[in-house]
Simulated assay, not measured.
Amino acid sequence: MLSKVVIPVAGLGTRVLPASKAIPKEMLSVVDKPVIQHVVEEAVAAGFRQIILVTRSGKSAIEDHFDSHYELEAELDRKGKVALLSSVKEILPAGVEVISVRQPFAKGLGHAVLCAAGVTGDEDFAVMLPDMLIDNDRAGADMQAMVERYRAGGAGQIMVEAVPQEQVERYGIVDCGGAAVKAGAGARVTGMVEKPARDEAPSNLAIVGRYILPARVMGLLEDTQPGAGDEIQLTDALVRLIQEAPLEAYSMTGDIYDCGNKAGLLQANVALGLKHPETADALAAFLAKRRT
């Protein structure tokens, strides 16, 4: 059974300040939806039905977004704004549940994931970072492919993307024993390192914020000591996991935008804006005019 996904949303969003001073970075908009809604829609399209938000004080806007808003819905209904009413009421599809747990201290991604242990229990689960937006021709296609690989072979999955060698020091990097991993395919992970020096990186395959993990990871996180940045790193627990269970790197096919920084957020708005029926023509015309 694979139905639960952990989404850590407790970060301060310092890379997009001052926009995130009073608004959670996950609520910043990409076209007409906050980033977190795009990520939840990806999870739902891949078959997940229990969304576990690891949050903190000051982030209630995220929970409110996925709750009903009676007054707004009643007013839209009264005015006959059917399309807008539908877009508001269907933010969370039937059969999908959002649960919130607190991360009282900022102790890293590994600690954030561990905070959800009481909800995931003894079930395998997914982890999705909320500021990494993946654009596929079919919603959730890469995440769904990882789910299918997990179900077929039983191995945990990490989504990766090939990045330029000069950028490897920005990411967690996986070692697949030198194997070439084509987009849409996978390879066994033999090691990984968090933000290696360029000349020490085992590959250029960067972890991009999507995981399917065995329940055993929670036990490993409990025993993981603070590492890089004096934080409990998920990567450190996964290094221990591969000593006892298989883990695969899945190379994504879609386009990824890091909406946790200003450039990535702008890029996502342009890319998705050019696909949205309400904005595509006007945005394309604007961009064409700017190029001339």
Rank of each mutant, 00 (worst) to 15 (best):
A237I: 02
E231N: 15
C259D: 00
G209V: 02
L238Y: 04
T279I: 04
P196N: 11
A245V: 06
N269D: 12
L238T: 01
G254E: 01
L283K: 11
K195A: 10
T224F: 03
V270C: 04
A201R: 03
R210N: 06
L272T: 04
L234Q: 01
L213T: 06
Q233T: 10
I242Q: 05
Y211I: 02
S203C: 07
E222F: 04
T224Q: 06
P246K: 07
K195M: 09
G260N: 05
R216S: 10
D255A: 14
L274D: 07
E278C: 13
R210G: 02
Q225V: 14
R240Q: 11
D236S: 14
P246Y: 04
L265H: 11
K275Q: 13
S251P: 10
R216M: 10
G264N: 10
E248D: 15
L220R: 02
A215H: 13
K262A: 14
K262Q: 15
L221F: 04
V270L: 11
A201G: 11
T235F: 05
A285V: 08
T253R: 14
L234V: 02
Q243I: 01
K262L: 15
A282K: 08
M218I: 07
S203V: 02
G260Y: 00
T235L: 14
D281A: 15
I232R: 11
V217S: 00
D223S: 14
T224K: 01
V239K: 09
G229R: 01
E200T: 13
A237Y: 03
A282T: 05
L265M: 10
R210C: 08
D258L: 07
E231Y: 13
V217P: 06
Q243D: 14
L205T: 08
G219T: 09
R198A: 12
L205S: 12
A268S: 10
Y211A: 05
A206D: 08
L266S: 09
D281P: 01
E278K: 14
P277W: 00
T224P: 08
T224C: 10
T235D: 14
P196T: 06
A280W: 03
